[in-house]
Nucleic acid binder design. Sequence first.
DNA 1: ACAACAATTGCAATCGGTTGCGTAAAAATA
DNA 2: TATTTTTACGCAACCGATTGCAATTGTTGT
Lengths: 342, 342
Amino acid sequence: MEENKHVTIYDIAERLNLATSTISRALKDHHTISDKTIKKVKKTAEEMGFVPNTLAAGLRGNKTRTIGVLIPTVTQPFLSSLISGIEITAQKSDYTVIIMQSHDSYEEEVNMAKSLYSNRVSGVICSLAMETRDTAHFHQFSNNNIPLVFVDRVPKDYNTFRVVIDNYSAGYKATKHLIEQGCIRIAHLTAGSELGNLYSERKRGYIEALKDHNIEVEEELIINLNSVTYEDGVKASNALFDLNPIPDGLFAPGDILAVSAVQTAKKRGIKVPEEFKVIGFNNDPISQIIDPNLSTITHPAEKMGKAAAEIIIKNLKSSKNDDAKEITFLNTEVLARESSEK
Amino acid sequence: MEENKHVTIYDIAERLNLATSTISRALKDHHTISDKTIKKVKKTAEEMGFVPNTLAAGLRGNKTRTIGVLIPTVTQPFLSSLISGIEITAQKSDYTVIIMQSHDSYEEEVNMAKSLYSNRVSGVICSLAMETRDTAHFHQFSNNNIPLVFVDRVPKDYNTFRVVIDNYSAGYKATKHLIEQGCIRIAHLTAGSELGNLYSERKRGYIEALKDHNIEVEEELIINLNSVTYEDGVKASNALFDLNPIPDGLFAPGDILAVSAVQTAKKRGIKVPEEFKVIGFNNDPISQIIDPNLSTITHPAEKMGKAAAEIIIKNLKSSKNDDAKEITFLNTEVLARESSEK
DNA sequence: ACAACAATTGCAATCGGTTGCGTAAAAATA
DNA sequence: TATTTTTACGCAACCGATTGCAATTGTTGT
C-alpha cells in the first residue's frame, strides 16, 4: 500500500536546495523571485504532486478565501439556484463555497453559524431559517469584520448587507394582474415567520392592490398556513372551495401552494382558469410542468446569489470598514401563463 | 467599531493561569484533567466567547472531520436529496459537509477535487461528471488513505467504495412493467457517458426485458440523446411520434425526459396512457405534478447519501486499511401511476 | 576598482490547537 | 515516616505556509 505523505513546500525546498520562503513566493509569482527560479519551482512542484495545504495558509494568514452559505435547505429550487449563482461568481474570483443547511431550525442555524466561524470563512451569505427569532449568532461575524450578507429571508433590524426583492410590490403586482384578468374575489395564502417577514410583505401588497382597485378585503379569503407545503396548500384550497361562492382567483406566495390549489381545483371539477385563476410565486420548474401552466412571479435566484457573492468579494478586497451596508433590491416580474388567462 | 480579536486557548490559559495544553484537554474532557478544572475552563471559554479554530486543529492533527461532496449540481432533485442524506448522517457523528459542484465538467471536477484535497477533507463522496473520462484526479485521495465513495454515477474500474442501484434490473423492471400493461412496441431514450455508464445499463435491462418477452428490439425505437434535458426530450419524442405507427410505450431513464414526452404527446393529441404509456425514472417531484401522474422508478437518493456517509465515517473510525472496498446496492421499485395505466 | 544600489534568496517568527513526555503534588501503600 | 502510585498539569515541539527583515550576490556608475 503506497502511503504518499502529503508533499509540502519543505519537500520542494529540500529537493531544490532553496528556502521554504522562496518556494512559497515562487508559487505565487512574487516579484522578488527570478523567473528562472519560479519556473524551476513550479515545475518541481508539479512533478512532486504538490498541493498547497489550505489549512496552514488559512491559519497563518487568517483568511481562507472561503464563502460560507447558510440556508434552510438545498432542495428548494429557489435556493439551489441561489447557490448556483453564488458559486459562479465565487469561482471567478477563486473563492471556495461551503454550504450548510439549517433545515429551517433555529438550533441548527446557530450550530452551523458557529461551525462556519470555526472554519474561519472569509464571508457569509445567509437566508434565515423559518424558526429563527433572534440574530445574536451572527454577531461573531459582524464583530470580527467578516462580511455578512442576508438574502431573501432577511432580518429587518440587522445592520448588514441585504439582497432581496421587493416583496410588497411583487405581491401588489401579482394581485393587480389577477384583477386585470377580471378577478373580483381574490383569495390569498400567507404564512407567519417573525424575522424574515416576506410573506407578510406580500400580503401587504395584496391588500393594497385590492384597496387601490376598490375591492373589499375579505378576511375569510385570507388563509394563514402553518407551513408552506403541498399538504397545507391542499387543506387551504379545500377550505376556499368550500366557500359559497368560491373565490374567482388566488394569489399564492409560492408555486408549490399554487400547484396544490390548481390540482385541488381540478379534482373538485373547478376549471382553471375559467372559474378560478391562479398566480404563484418563484417560477419554479413545476410551474411549467403543471397543466395549465402556472402564472407566477419571477424570483431572480441566480442573480441574487451573484449579487450576494459580489458584495462579499468586493468587501473583502477593499477591506475598508465602511459602515454603509446597502440593501440591494432585485426586480421581479409577472409571468402571465395559462392559469390566469381571461 | 468593536474589533474583537478571535479568542484563543491562549487567552483562556492566561486568564486562568493554566497551560494551553490543559485548556485544550479540558475542552475535550480528557481524563487526566480534574472535573473542577474542566468545569472552570468550559465556563470561562463560554464567557469569553471562545470558538475553536478548526484550521489550527486540522493542521496539527491532519484530520478535519469534514466530508467533501463532489457532484455535478445541487439543482437536480436526486442530488439534493442525496446531499440531504449525507448531511443527516454526518451531523450525527459531528462531521461537517462541504459541497462542490462540477457542473458536469471534467475540468471543474479536477479542480474541485484538488480543492477538496487542499482543504484536507477527511473523506470524499463523489458522483462523476458526465464529461469525466478518467479518474486520475482521485488518486490523491486513495494514495493518502482518504476514504472515497462513489455514488450513482460511478467508475467501473476504480477500486474503492461504491453506492449504487442496480440500473440493469431497474431498466428491466421498468420495461417489464410496460409490457405487463400491454405495450408491445416500447421506445427507449438513452444517453452516452463512458465512465458512469448507468444509461447503458438501463438500456441493457430494457433490451433483456424485451427479449425475455419475445418482443423484437427495434433500433428506430431507441434514441440516443446528447443530453438529458427537457429540450432534447421533446426533440426525441417528436421523432418517435413521427413514426408510423407510433410506439405504444416509452421507458425514459429520467423523469424530465418522461415529462417532456408526455407533454409533447398531449400537444400532438396523443392520449397518455391510452395510446402511449410512459414510465420515467427517479421519482422527482415533477412526476406527481404532471397530469397524468408519472409512473416511475424510485431512486433512493437520501438512503444512498446516508449509506455513503456511513461508509466514510465507519472507515475513518476503524482506520484499518482493509482493501475490501464493497459495493452497496440499494433497491429500486416500480411506482405505477397514471401514465402507464391500462 | 570601489561605493551605491538593485535583484534574489534565506532566516526565523508566527498563526492556534494538539500531544508525548516530564514533573510536582496528593493519595495510597509499605 | 519513607516510598510507590496516582492524579493533575506544564513544557515545548509540531503541523505547513506566510512574511518582515536581514544577508548575499549581481549590476551600474564614477
